[in-house]
């Protein structure tokens, strides 16, 4: 009986959490369509998320492309299918690894920072202060971040795609002895618009999720510095899990037949 009760409570907790999260997301989104708009906050968030995440995302991408080249070579050489390496790299980077790895990196960097900043504002009454100064905190703090993240991440992923393919290209030509022209030709000839577009669409969703989790956990944080710490951890963990879960869902939507 006790086990059942505990299970029931757990399910109720999950449902309650999902409900509150959905309401929060809707409230945040609805403010994107009602003035006033805080362009300054949006620009700040865009620079913070897009520009300052560039180095870490670029590094992740280049190493991923390099490793991919090495690993697939050892695998494909057994079947004498080395020619497929260029194709494999460009597909895995644009469809999967670009958006997912960039999403995870941005979750760690930006999601955590958002949760910490908004959480600190919550526990030091700054969010209440906004409300007393003719400013809706959801509109001022949350909406610009959601929009900025959903725009910045696709841009980051576009760059990550190029750098990732470049990483594979470098290893393939410099170490594995591929002909650069053939390799590039293989890369491009197999690539379809849908591969890139689906990856960018995923990135927009992931960016939104990262900002949503950062804002949600920060906004609802309680109890001083410890509460902010908990919020930060929750934001990163939940954003990471959601990214992987939504990656499956979106892949199913785009490519299942």
């Amino acid at each position: 009986m006790a086990l059942l009760a505990a299970l029931g409570r757990f399910v109720l907790d999950i449902c309650g959490f999902a409900g509150r999260l959905a309401l929060f997301a809707l409230a945040g989104l609805s403010h994107l369509f009602r003035p006033p708009f805080y362009g300054r906050m949006f620009a700040r968030a865009l620079v913070e998320i897009g520009y300052f995440s560039l180095p870490v995302v670029a590094l992740t991408a280049v190493f991923t492309g390099m490793v991919l080249a090495l690993q697939s070579y050892t695998g494909f050489a057994r079947f004498s299918a080395e020619g497929a390496i260029a194709n494999l790299i460009v597909l895995s980077v644009t469809r999967e690894l670009g958006p997912v790895l960039a999403g995870l990196m941005v979750a760690g960097r930006v999601g955590a920072a958002m949760a910490a900043e908004i959480g600190t504002m919550r526990v030091t009454d700054q969010i209440d202060a906004l409300a007393t100064l003719s400013t809706n905190p959801m509109k001022y703090l949350v909406a610009p971040r959601l929009l900025a993240a959903a725009i910045a991440l696709p841009l980051l992923v576009l760059i990550a795609d190029i750098i990732g393919v470049l990483g594979g290209f470098i290893i393939a030509t410099a170490k594995l002895g591929f002909n650069p022209h053939t390799y590039l030709a293989n890369t491009i000839s197999f690539l379809q618009t849908m591969d890139v577009v689906s990856g960018l669409a995923k990135a927009a969703v992931f960016g939104f999720l990262v900002a949503l989790m950062g804002c949600f956990h920060g906004y609802n944080s309680r109890g001083g510095a410890e509460g902010v710490g908990t919020a930060t951890t929750s934001a990163v963990v939940s954003a990471s899990v959601l990214i992987l879960a939504f990656d499956y869902v979106l892949t199913e939507m785009f490519f299942a037949r």
Binding site: E117, T120, T124, D125, Q126, D128, A129, L130, T132, L133
Partner: peptide, 26 residues
């Protein structure tokens, strides 16, 4: 609420904004 001004117990200044922007926020 716009008719009300409030001084919070711990001041609750916006720490990402300079002093003058805090004061002129409203």
């Amino acid at each position: 609420r716009a008719r009300v001004g409030m001084l919070f117990q711990n001041a609750a200044l916006f720490d990402s904004l300079p002093v003058w922007e805090n004061v002129a926020f409203g």
